[in-house]
Amino acid sequence: MRTHPFDLFAIDGLLTDEEREIQRTVRTMGERELRPRVAQWFEDGAIPARELARELGKLGVLGMHLEGYGCAGTSALSYGLACLELEAVDSGLRSLVSVQGSLTMYAIWKYGSEEHKQEWLPGMAAGEKIGCFGLTEPDAGSDPGSMRTTARRDGSDWILNGTKMWITNGSVADVAVVWARTDEGVRGFVVPTDAPGFSAPEIKRKLSLRASVTSELVLEDVRLPAGAVLPSARGLSGPLGCLNEARFGIVFGALGAARDCLETAISYVGDRTVFGRALASYQLTQQKLADMTLELGKGMLLALQLGRLKDEGRLTPEQISLGKLNNVREAIAIARECRTLLGANGITLEYPVIRHANNLESVLTYEGTSEVHTLVIGKALTGEGAFR
């Protein structure tokens, strides 16, 4: 008789009935509708983004932790569990949901005008409109304060010029939230992607997050009306607040990829015969499984604690850094170790392990690299900033 890794930590007993039901619903949809197709999407390097957005909108996970405007208004922890189940299928699918809800929709919901919210949020919650978030630039990733994109006033209008890079959903988006330097400091702008001067060429030849649309955003004298600016966001605190929302989802999401790898490995070693015995019966195999289960369970306990703190309004950026640093680092280690248990089969798309491992290489560095989160934690512990 096999015990599931999470059962050793009695994880289900830490969730409410509603949280368990949301998790089951997302997992069922993922297993039935997404998993059968995701390996082909990864191999092709292309996804049916609009179809997926509508499916995920019907599921209710787009902006699910936001209130009003067609959003479900669930707890943050429930949103985290949904991210876990989506990333158990593929990190690219969780990225679509995360960028839509935790970055673009959250920016409009938190910092936008009522007109922005009414125009965009209902359609985005339904998956009828897709959004992207333009912060990262070719030379400004971990240091967004060095961005070169500018917005200058021209009468009552704004003129935007610049380039953004590694933008999820960019080529299929209907709206982009773009951050730019102005005479007033960094400001955010709601940019319809059909605006003259806006283009979003897709980035190809990726070996990670292949089941995801990744793009460059190019803004060449994009003219926007005065009302395009996000009125309640000034300075870097605006985009950084959005990033913390997305990082929270990653704390849970990375565990989904790790869980799927571990479940796959446990099943595989039970069926695989080596030297006349099941691979699962060897001590080294069991040591690997036990070590991975320990790290997965510890990561889940950390995620649940952070989720409770977020729902109580007590979660700090430093705590999010703890979760992102630990859970992604352990998830990628689990994926790599599981690959060894599958041997040569571990490098094929017949199994999800190498796909998860490749995806987690991106998750390790986006929304804040491990190095940046390490320094955030170090500053909290010492009171000394070591970024420069």
Rank of each mutant, 00 (worst) to 15 (best):
G378W: 01
L96G: 03
E318P: 05
M124F: 10
E384A: 09
E85S: 11
D260H: 09
Y69C: 12
L315S: 11
K288N: 09
M165S: 15
T163Q: 08
E220H: 13
W158R: 08
W158S: 08
S78M: 13
I347F: 15
F133A: 02
V363N: 03
M105C: 10
G235S: 06
A257W: 01
D139H: 11
K379N: 09
P317E: 07
I250L: 11
A290M: 05
T3K: 06
M292V: 03
Q23D: 00
R94K: 14
A357W: 03
A46S: 08
E371R: 13
L59S: 12
L93C: 04
G270H: 14
E87K: 12
D12C: 01
G253F: 05
A140T: 02
D183A: 15
I320T: 12
A246I: 02
G378P: 00
S208A: 12
R20S: 13
E119D: 11
R205K: 14
E19G: 08
M29A: 13
L243W: 00
R247E: 05
G80E: 09
K379H: 09
S75P: 09
K110E: 14
P225T: 08
D44A: 15
E295W: 12
P225I: 00
V178P: 02
L262H: 03
D154Y: 01
L236M: 13
A72W: 09
M165W: 15
L243C: 01
G185V: 06
T348D: 11
G92R: 01
Q287H: 05
Y69W: 15
R152N: 06
R234C: 04
V38L: 06
R234H: 09
G256W: 01
D157A: 09
G68H: 11
